[in-house]
Every structure is written in C-alpha cells, then in structure tokens.
Design a protein around this nucleic acid. Structure first.
Length: 807
RNA sequence: GCCUGUGUGGCGGAAUUGGUAGACGCGCUGGACUCAAAAUCCAGUAUUAGCAAUAAUGUGUGGGUUCGAGUCCCACCACAGGCACCA
C-alpha cells in the first residue's frame, strides 16, 4: 500500500466526525463513566505548540484505549480565551478581542482536528462565551452572597510608564515585562475571595485525591502551614499587641520587637511615637520599594526604632524596645515578631546592624558569631535552655511545651496555625475578562446584580486603552458604567474591574459534564453521573496555582451544596516540555520553534503523534529531534509493509503467542502509568518479531494494529479496513492471558562472586538442583571455579545464579 | 537559603520487587540491491586490549550495606524548575 497519509488522515477524521464516534452520552448506565481531561489551551495567535501535541496525544491514547475497554469516556476540549495577549492585540489593531479570539480558536480547532484527537466536540465552549461566563459571574455572586467575596485596599504592582496594574507574573523581577520600567507598589481597592478560610480544608482534601506526590507537595508548600504560638505583648503605659512565633522556647532571649512598616500596628501607634518624622520616612520608603527591592535588601536589615513606645516581655517583665523593619511582613501572622537574635539569623543580622543586645537562651552554639537556629538545635539532643528562669536546664521540646502551657494558662497566649496562602486577589484592571457583576450605589454601597440579569456582557467598543489612573478600560465606557442600583433604583455605577484569567478555568471541568445547560452551570444529576475528573493532565507550571484555585472553587461549591464531591479531580499528572533541538525552550527569538502543521504536512499526524510519545520520559522535558521523528515514520512504513506478510494461517502462532500476550499486558500497563515511550518500543519489538517471520496471520496483524491505534489512529484504521474488519474505534481491546505471558524457556545469567561469567538455558519450571548443576557445568563458569572452594550457590528462580567461591 | 526533579554510550532514552546495565530508536561504519541516488534489507556499534573466544573498566563523585547495587543508606558535586526575609 502506498502511504498517502494526507488522504488517509482526512478520510478517518471525517468518518469520526460524521459518526459522532467520540461524543459521550451523559447518564449511560450500560457503561462505567471515565473522564479524561487535559488543560484547555489559551488560543494564542501563534497556533498550537508541539508541546500541546504531547499531552493531548497522551490523554487521547488513554481515552481511546479506555473506550475500547468498554468505558463511557468523556474527553472534552474548550478554550480559555480571556487574557492579556488578546487585549494587547486589540489595542494595537483596534478590533474587538472577541474577533481575534474567534480566529485563533478556528486555527487551534483545525490543528487539533488534523491531529485526530478524539475530543467530544459537542461539548466545546470558550470561557469568553456569554453562555459560559454568565455562570462564572453567577458563581461569583454565590461567593459574594456567602460572605466569601469582599473589597479591600491592598498594594498592587503598578507600572508608571504603561499606567497599568500588573500581575505578579508580569512584574517578575520588579520590572514591567512589557516596557522594562521599575514596578512600584500602589494602593488599590480590589475584590478578594476568602481563600484563606479554606487553607486547612485544601490541605486535608489532598488525602481524597490521587495526585502525583510532587503535585501534592506543591500544594502543601503553597498553603505553607506553620504551627506556633500567638502571644499578647503589653506596652509600657497601656495597650498591647500580639506576635506569632514557632520558637516559643526562645522567649527569654527577646531583646527587641520588630513590626512591619506596612502593617496596621504602626499606624495605630503613630500618635504616641516620638520620632514621627523618621518613622514616617521609613514607612514611605518601604512603600516605594517593589517586592523585588525588598528581597534584594536581604543582607541589609534596614529599619528604625519606634521611640516613645516600649514593650514588656511577658515572661520576665523586662522593658524591650520596638523597631520597624521591612523584613517583617504586614500580611503574615500578626505583622509583628519577637526578635531573638541569639537564635534567629534575621534577628541576629538586625541586631548586629542596629547594635542591639544578644542573649543566649539555648546552649550548644556560638551566638557571638551567628544565630544558633531551630534547624540546628532541634537536631542537637545536648542543647538545653539557659538563662530562662525555671525553664533553664530543660530540653528544647520540654521547654516548648512548658512555656506554651504557662502562657496559655495565664491567658495571654494561644496555640495557632498560620498559613502563607493569602486571600485570592480577584480584580484585574483589564477589559478582556469576565465583568464582575457588582454595582456601586452612593446610598446602598456595593450591591450584587440580580441573578436573572446575568450575563453582564462586555460592551462592543473599539478602544481598549487603559485609563490614566490605572482603572480598567471599562471605566472609560460611561454608557456601560452608568446604571441603576438593584436595591434602590437610583443612579449607580458598575464595577469596572474584571475577573482574573484563573476564574474561568477554575470550574470549566464541571461545565464539560453538562455543557449546554441553560438553567444551571451544570446539573447535579450530570455531575453525579460523571462523578469527577478521573485523569487530569497539564503542565507542571499550573500544578500549584490553577489546581489550588480550582480546588478552592469546588470546595466552596460543595459547601453550599452545588457539586457532589469535595474534590472533583482524582488523578493529576503533569508532563515535561518539548524543547527545541538545542535543548532550550522553544521561542521565536531563538529560532528553534517547530510548527506542528509543517510536521503533519511532511510526515503525517500519526508519525508526529508516535514520535511525541516516543521522544522520552513523559514527565521530563525532551528536546526535539527531526531525525528521531523520521525513525517513527519508518516504523509506520514497516507496519504497512507487514500487511504483505499476512498468510493463510489463523490465530496466534506458537512463535509469537507469548510475545503478543506480553505486549498487550505491557501496553495496557504503560498507557496508564505515563510510560508512553515504552509503549512505542514494545510495539517496535513486536513489529520486529513479525518481520522475522516468513508469514503472519490476520489475527496477529490485527492485534498489532489495535495496540498501536491509540497512538496512530488513522493509519491503523485504514489498514484494519483493508484486511476486512469493522473499525477499530468500534472494536474491543484485546485481552491477554497471564499464563501465556511467560516464556517456557529462558536464558539466565550465571555469576561467580557477583560477576557475570556466562548464561544458561533453563525451562521456566526447572528444579533448583538442575539449574544449579547446569550453572556449575557452564563452560566459562567452570574455568573460574576450578580448584576453588564453593562457599554457596544462590539460585534466584527465573533470574540468576550466583556462585560464591573462596580463594 | 529552602523545596522539587534530574545526572546511564556519539544522541533521545530502557532496566515494574536489589538479580544478565545500555531494551527500543537515532546517528555512525561496512555490505547487498541500483548506471547512480533515494527507499529498503543484512551485519556491526559502551570503553580499552585482542582476529576471536574472552578479560579489565563502566550508570555524576567519595564511602557503606549485600552473595549481588543504576536501583538501598550516608556525605558531597553539577544542572534544571519553583518558592524566596513566612517569624
């Protein structure tokens, strides 16, 4: 057969379309549901990346196998199309971003069709569809109505040149990604979601998932739980504040306190401060510094003393000075710390710079040189408390408990948990996002829109320039902004901020379960049927945040009774990047970008798919190699040639039977264990074995086609049709028999003192005595043991023989 | 600094519980077919020595456990990614 992949691929893609082969029926009780999900892409202007092809093919292979195994497979696709690039493009070209998005989606979809992915296109949607974002807005209103959304003034990244608020990603390194200016902090009122309320639930929920261990760790680190004690500290002359510490055992070593310059405490104290000007200057200087500057000043522990206010150490009554220092963060813990320079390196550096006292309270280090920190003294069983009144002489763990107990009994301390994870900043000052359905009325304050008025559509205008003061471009569109208050009916203004990119992607997997529902975001019935996402794949870069946001969103919906499970994603795996042939990330500037369209044109989609699965460990990055790609083309050519070897026989021949059964078992196992590269090598081995035979049977040929079908669906369907079978997509996955997976004869190694000296042929069930005898007689082995004393002979069944000799 | 991952031929990478290291593919070398080329097929290909059988060395480095270590333990080095003053 001539391999006209263009014709073959088109033919089968049309066949699948016309027959609605991959459309999943919700509620089909005759089959077990199985939900395979891959992160839906942002349809950028540059088209599908070969990296997309890698993960989509992997999930496609799983989906195709599962279908043949009798599962009702849901493998959907859609578009995460809100975002800054489309907006930038719109500003430059004066067209509505939805036009650009429409074009890009068309391109992406065409490319995906050309690759033969078995997506259920009947469920396709874009996060930018009003029918979809209506429900994103509706869910925001649920957050609001349950007290989970609030407006707060917080510092944001501000680019003075672009006059725009930047996300942390766009402000990485303290410079604006677009223009390179230094990013400043600016106070702005933002919508927030109370994600921190869910810290503990998000941590615990991980036990109800099957995420890869490193994915779980990523979540755990991001949540950043730490357990410690919050202690009330009284001020001389009245008033008090609290500090949070994980090292209560060092409390006798306090020589000063440090409070955050951006925190609320210092504002409160201001009237009592004696050196107001100095303090104010420092607060302002901190505000001007970007996050990055603050980090860079790491070595330089800047700060000023807050004069006129002194604190009292609750354990010994001593008066202690208070300082401002920007190494203390206003939004973590209580925004104030007890400083123990003897046992905390940051405090040590601060004390050294500002000439403050250092008192050792735990023995074992040399605190004149550096702090003797928790990470060291906890591992030193010799360390004891010193200079700590009645606690002196105790071990660290004893003291921790005793001091905590004492302070808790006195009613001035509480054991608490703190989390690094903050509330979710949900506002973006951009045009191209879901409008936040809130209305501000002078009389009634913030009012939610009426649910029946949703969706709140983005207006059709031609200008998307940001405003001078950093408001969203929507603020310029007065006819859109001005509205009436849903409560009193008076004049009111709409919120002009939009939602972040993460919003639409936080629940899209629920929508796929019931994509066309006009009454609800998805019906409970449909969600109960599909139950959850069984297998979710995406890039490692999304495993922390996207996954956390999505889990938070789902847990909230669960709490208010709108989804059936607390966790709606069972297995989450991640894939490595496809790098350029020079082993660097593909980028236009480096000129190492491979366009999948070009590859499909020259080698066909099946070759590209097989190659991307073969290129390396799926979870690891792998460089592109056109030479290796050609090797995969040769493999497919070989599969085609093998058809001519089909003879008149039937069933599996004695020569091939074991290998076939083993191959079915391995392909099945590897496809669900992320070992796609060895799926390909297994099939190459099988094909090579067929090639060694004079002739093969139809059944043998067909089993190879079915096993290869998940990776190369077009050519295998074509060959399958040519030999007269019903389409593979309507067929049943072959079954292997465990008993037929083992060879009856095998060659095992014989070692002498652990070194391989020869091999022997044995029957699989050969008795140990006989194996031992064969091993000792083996020609080369005999040379090594001649005249030596044999200490023992270790026979590992079906694996190896090791002869231990002396002398 | 912390967390995570990775170090195996010329290259991408195999090696499911410790049991014949280098499967499979690429590349390379030689040969067949051809006027020639492409395609295809055959043989070889970790390193060193040898015509060969074979031997020695060999999975980032140094130790250890074991009859036996790429795999387990301890210490370290390099690279990649993420987080970064979190009290």
């Amino acid at each position: 057969m001539e391999y006209n992949f263009k014709k073959i691929e088109k033919k089968w893609q049309n066949f699948w379309d016309e027959n609605h082969t991959f459309e999943a029926k919700t509620g089909d009780k005759s089959k077990e549901p199985y939900y395979v999900l891959v992160e839906f892409p942002y349809p950028s202007g540059s088209g599908l990346h070969v990296g997309h092809v890698r993960s989509y093919t992997a999930q496609d292979a799983i989906a195709r196998m599962k279908r043949m195994q009798g599962f009702n497979v849901l493998y959907p696709m859609g578009w995460d199309a809100f975002g800054a690039p489309a907006e930038q493009y719109a500003i430059k070209n004066h067209i509505h971003p939805k036009e650009a998005v429409k074009e890009n989606i068309k391109t992406f979809k065409g490319q995906m069709k050309n690759l033969g992915f078995s997506f259920d296109w009947s469920r396709e949607f874009s996060t930018t569809d009003p029918e979809y974002y209506k429900w994103t807005q509706w869910q925001f209103l649920q957050f609001y109505k349950h007290g989970m959304a609030y407006k707060d003034t917080i510092p944001v990244n501000w680019c003075p040149t672009c006059k725009s608020v930047l996300s942390n990603e766009d402000a990485a390194g303290g410079v604006c990604e677009r223009c390179g200016s230094s990013v400043l902090q600016k106070e702005k009122a933002q919508w927030m979601l109370r994600m921190s309320d869910y810290s503990e639930d998000l941590l615990k929920g991980l036990d109800d998932t099957n995420f890869a261990e490193k994915v779980k760790l990523g979540q755990i680190n991001w949540i950043g739980k730490s357990t410690g004690v919050e202690v009330d500290i009284s001020l001389v002359g009245g008033g008090k504040f609290s500090i949070f510490t994980t090292c209560i055992e060092t409390i006798y070593g306090i020589t000063f306190f440090v409070v955050a310059p951006d925190g609320k405490l210092i504002k409160e104290w201001m009237p009592r401060v004696e050196n107001k000007e100095e303090v104010q200057t420092y607060i302002e200087a901190t505000a001007k510094k970007s996050n990055m500057d603050r980090t860079e000043l790491n070595k330089d522990k800047s700060g000023v003393e807050v004069k006129g206010i002194k604190a009292i150490n609750p354990v010994n009554g001593s008066e202690v000075p208070i300082y401002l220092g920007d190494f203390v963060l206003g939004d973590y813990g209580t925004g104030a710390v007890m400083a123990v320079p003897s046992h905390d390196q940051r405090d040590f550096e601060y004390a050294t710079k500002h000439h403050l006292e250092i008192i050792e309270v735990i023995s074992g280090g040399d605190v004149s040189k550096q702090a003797y920190e928790k990470k060291d003294y906890l591992h030193n069983p010799e360390s004891r408390l010193v200079a700590s009144a009645e606690f002196s002489g105790m071990s660290v763990m004893e003291a921790k408990k005793a001091i905590t107990k004492e302070l808790v009994n006195r009613g001035i301390a509480r054991e608490v948990n703190n989390y690094k994870m903050r509330d979710w900043i949900f506002s973006r000052q951009r045009f191209w996002g879901e409008p936040i359905p809130m209305i501000h009325c002078e009389k009634c304050g913030w009012q939610p829109m009426k649910e029946e008025d949703l969706p709140l559509l983005l207006p059709d205008v031609a200008e998307y320039e940001p405003t001078e003061n950093g408001e969203s471009p929507l603020a310029n569109i007065t006819e859109w902004v001005n509205t009436t208050c849903p409560s009193c009916g008076g004049a009111a203004k709409r919120e002009t901020d939009t939602m972040p990119n993460w919003a639409g992607s936080s629940w899209y997997f629920l929508r796929f379960m019931d994509a066309h529902n006009k009454e609800e975001f998805a019906s409970m019935e449909a969600m109960k049927y599909w139950n959850r996402v069984d297998w979710y794949n995406g890039g490692m870069e999304h495993t922390a945040r996207h996954l956390l946001y999505a889990r938070f969103w789902v847990q909230f919906l669960y709490k208010i009774g709108l989804v059936p499970n607390k966790e709606m994603i069972w297995t989450r795996v991640s894939h490595g990047m496809v790098l350029g042939s020079n082993n660097e990330k593909m980028s236009k500037s480096k000129g190492n970008v491979i366009n999948p369209d070009d590859v499909i044109k020259e080698y066909g989609a099946d070759t590209l798919r097989v190659y991307e699965m073969f290129m390396g460990d799926y979870q690891q990055d792998a460089p592109w190699s056109t030479d290796s790609l050609k090797g995969c083309k040769r493999f497919i050519d070989k599969i085609i040639r093998l058809k001519d070897k089909i003879g008149t026989g039937s069933g599996y021949s004695r020569e091939l039977e074991t290998l076939i059964h083993k191959s079915i078992k391995k392909v099945e196992y590897d496809l669900t264990h992320l070992a796609f590269n060895t799926v390909v090598s297994t099939l190459m081995i099988l094909a090579n074995a067929y090639d060694d035979q004079k002739e093969i049977t139809k059944e043998e040929y067909r089993v190879l086609l079915i096993l290869l079908n998940p990776l190369a669906p077009h050519v295998t369907e074509e060959l399958n049709e040519l030999i007269g079978y019903e389409p593979i997509c309507k067929s049943v996955w072959p079954k292997y028999e465990e008993s037929k997976c083992v060879e009856t004869e095998l060659a095992i190694g014989v070692q002498v003192n652990g070194k391989l000296r020869g091999t022997i042929q044995i029957r699989v069930d050969e008795e140990e005595v006989s194996v031992k005898e064969k091993a000792l007689k083996q020609e080369n082995v005999a040379k090594f043991i001649e005249g030596k004393e044999i200490v023992k002979v270790i026979v590992v069944p079906k694996k190896i023989v090791n002869i231990v000799i002396k002398g």
